[in-house]
Design a binder for these strands. Structure first.
Lengths: 123, 123
DNA sequence: ATGTATGCAAACCTTTTGCATATTC
DNA sequence: GAATATGCAAAAGGTTTGCATACAT
């Protein structure tokens, strides 16, 4: 565990519930270590993904977002107007998986859902 | 409507139910017009997206996939083992949207779900 | 004839990689 | 001391863009 990895790990914990992308993390990391390198950040995120510490989200075109891995799986809602990202649990997930197993024969391991529309404030 | 656009449009129709990525489309297009350019393909796909003729899918890391826009919204299942992509309807979608409206106040406009696991053949 | 689309090459942007040096255990 | 991680700079890969030419209406 190097200084750089510690910084990135701490950052991810601090950002829990948020969904920063690489450049946001890079800016934050540079405040703690101005010499930290972007490739170190990328390499560390890759390691953390492998170690199941961090999850990569594909919420937007431009770049990936990252979040620290939480106990329970959850989904993401993106507000079209203000861009706010909200986490939510997929209602009746068990039922959905069972239904799809029945109808299509899938053995579902993960579900990634991105809902978009208007959030509570913007609707 | 140019020759190139016609070729790409016809291709997309032919590929209905499949989910080709750009290079697959490019290869197919070059069979009909060996001089067609990759940037024309990209530009045309962008136009078709704007015109709601084509939908862009983010099923994999490496590249986007494209499909011709169908009447009813559907979701995608990707088999971890064989890579097969299957379309499916999200069970009880209305209920889910209603539930999320109630709990979180969302006004949901689109849902993009990517389920992965094992398909019927591979499970 | 006017406006729009094309081909080509170059640029862009995010992410990855090779390599020498520095750091961790 | 051996193995691994870092910084730097360069490359990679998919996608976009500027511009002169060609095409559609």
């Amino acid at each position: 565990m190097t200084k750089q990895r510690q910084i990135i790990f701490d950052l991810m914990k601090q950002q829990c519930g948020k969904h920063p992308h690489v450049m946001e993390l890079y800016s934050l990391a540079k405040k703690k270590d101005p010499n930290i390198n972007l490739s170190t950040l990328y390499r560390t995120l890759t390691e953390f993904k492998k170690a199941d510490i961090v999850e990569e989200l594909h919420l937007e075109e431009e770049h990936h977002h990252y979040e620290i891995k939480q106990a329970e799986q959850h989904q993401h809602f993106v507000c079209e107007k203000c861009g706010a990202i909200t986490e939510f649990d997929l209602p009746a997930e068990q039922k959905i998986e069972k239904e799809l197993a029945k109808v299509h024969g899938f053995k579902i391991k993960t579900i990634k859902m991105i809902a978009s529309g208007l959030c509570k404030k913007c609707r």
